[in-house]
């Protein structure tokens, strides 16, 4: 994971790690050199961390890394995580049928915007559900309609 902006030609996007929470759980390893509150200095390589997952097979390893990416909270700079999230769910990657031209063939900043707008739509759905819920004076505990697969903490920026 680099402090880089995938929507801006992967240029370094350094800053202060206002919020920084590592993913945890089975098969997940994070090697990094930062803590919350630290600045990513401009002088050196913008790598923040290496996120490593393993599983009993390729599918498990991929679903784990997607889960870990969702858990990773980074506020303060753009990172390559949204790009990784896109790649890891792409048919070319999951089928194993890819080469070094992946970015040239399949990636544009627009694909990240599409993912974001899906997320915004979902946020809208949740909000309308909550409002409806209130107007119905329904006192049952509200469970998010999100299936938990789209919402990603790393999308929040510079709170």
């Amino acid at each position: 994971m680099y402090a880089e902006d995938p929507a801006n030609d992967f240029l370094p996007d350094i800053g202060k790690l206002v919020r920084y929470v590592r993913p945890q759980g089975p098969g997940v390893r994070v090697d990094d050199g930062f803590e919350e509150g630290m600045d990513i200095p401009i002088y050196y390589d913008p790598m923040i961390a290496k996120l490593i997952t393993h599983g009993k097979d390729r599918e498990e390893a991929i679903s784990r890394v997607l889960r870990a990416i969702r858990e990773y909270v980074i506020v303060g700079c753009e990172t390559t995580l949204p790009f990784c999230n896109y790649v890891l769910r792409h048919d070319a990657f999951t089928s194993g049928n890819f080469d070094t031209h992946f970015v040239k063939h399949y990636f544009t900043p627009a694909v990240l915007k599409e993912e974001l707008s899906k997320e915004e739509q979902q946020a809208g759905l949740i909000l309308s559900y909550l409002l409806q819920d209130q107007s119905n004076k329904n006192r049952k505990p509200v469970v998010s309609t999100s299936n938990g697969t789209e919402r990603s903490a790393w999308k929040i920026r510079r709170s």
Partner: peptide, 13 residues
């Protein structure tokens, strides 16, 4: 290491 940007690897398996 085929998934690269700017000739640097970003995802490896």
């Amino acid at each position: 290491c085929s998934i690269q940007r700017r000739h640097q690897k970003v995802i490896e398996e």
